[in-house]
Design a binder for these strands. Structure first.
Lengths: 138, 138
DNA sequence: ATCCTACAATGGACTTTGTCTAAGTCAATC
DNA sequence: GATTGACTTAGACAAAGTCCATTGTAGGAT
C-alpha cells in the first residue's frame, strides 16, 4: 500500500494522518467496505477522524482512479481498492458478501453498434448475483 | 398496459385508482423513472396520492416481477417496466440518460466455475457506461 | 528550526431517499 | 348496501451522504 501513498504524493497529494489511515484501511483483496465501515476502522487508529473527511478522502481516491465505487445493493456504496486489476463482482443475494471475479470474454465487445444508440461506450460493469456457500447450507 | 392490470387482478391484486395511475405512469419503452418522478407524474392525475403509496406500489410491482429496479448511479433507484424482455442498460455518464440494450452473448456463461467461489449464480446485470450523442456534441 | 499559507479536517446542520405507523378509507364480496 | 380486511394517507423517522464556516496543519520558504 505504501506504493499507493507514494503515487499519490507524486500527484501533489498532501499526505495527512487521516488520508494515510483511510488508505491503509482499504488495503487488501476482496475488500469492499462502506464509507461507514471505513470510518469505523479508521477511528480505531485515529479516534478524532471525522465522517466528512472519510467521505472526502474516499471521493478523492475514486477521482484519482485508485479506488472503485461499487453499488451492488441499494444501501451504502462500497469502496474497492483493487482498481488496477479489471474485474467484476459476484454478490450473495442473502448476506451481501462480495467477491471479485474475472469473467472470460469481453462484455464491451458484445454490444453491437446497433445497440449503442450513438453513445461512446467506454466502460462496462458486470454484477453476478447468487447465493454463497455459507448461505446455501444455512 | 391494460393487460398488466388484468394480470395483476388475476393474482388477487386489489385494483385501486392509485395503483392504476402508478402502472399507467410506468408504461412505455426506455422508461426509467425514479420513485419521486413516478410520484410527480401520478400527482398530475390523482392529486391526493401519497409518496408512501407510490413506494408501496412500486415495491409490489417489483416483487411480482412486473417491474425491475435499476440502480445505475448512487442516487435514487429507477423503475423499469420492461421486465418481460431481458435486457441490460447503457447509461450516459454526464446526463444520466438510460437506454435498454440487448448485448449478444451470455455473460453468465462467461463466468467459469473457478471464478464462482462456490456460489450458485442465478443472475447477471450489465451496465454499460459512456457518453450519449447529446452530451458529446454539447 | 520556525514561520506562512494554502490546503485539509472538523462537526454539525442540512438534503435526499426511503421506511414505518396509526388512523381513516374503500374495493370486492356477500 | 353492509361488511371487512386490504389499501391509502400524512407525517415522523432513519440512513447515507453533502455542505459550510471554522479551525488545524503539511510542507515549502526563510
Amino acid at each position: 500500500m505504501s506504493d499507493l501513498l507514494e503515487r499519490l504524493r507524486g500527484r501533489g497529494w498532501r499526505l495527512t494522518a487521516q488520508r494515510r489511515v483511510v488508505a491503509e484501511v482499504l488495503d487488501g483483496d476482496h475488500v469492499h467496505l462502506t464509507a461507514d465501515e471505513v470510518h469505523a476502522r479508521a477511528v480505531e487508529r485515529l479516534p478524532e477522524i471525522s465522517r466528512a473527511t472519510v467521505y472526502n478522502t474516499l471521493g478523492e481516491l475514486v477521482s484519482l482512479g485508485e479506488v472503485l465505487e461499487v453499488s451492488t445493493d441499494r444501501r451504502a456504496k462500497r469502496y474497492d481498492p483493487n482498481a488496477h486489476r479489471p474485474h467484476h463482482h459476484l454478490v450473495c443475494a442473502r448476506c451481501g458478501a462480495i467477491r471479485d471475479v474475472r469473467p472470460s470474454g469481453d462484455p464491451l465487445a458484445d454490444l453491437p453498434a446497433s445497440e449503442r444508440f450513438g453513445f461512446t461506450v467506454s466502460d462496462v460493469e458486470v454484477t453476478y448475483r447468487g447465493v454463497c456457500p455459507e448461505c446455501a447450507t444455512a
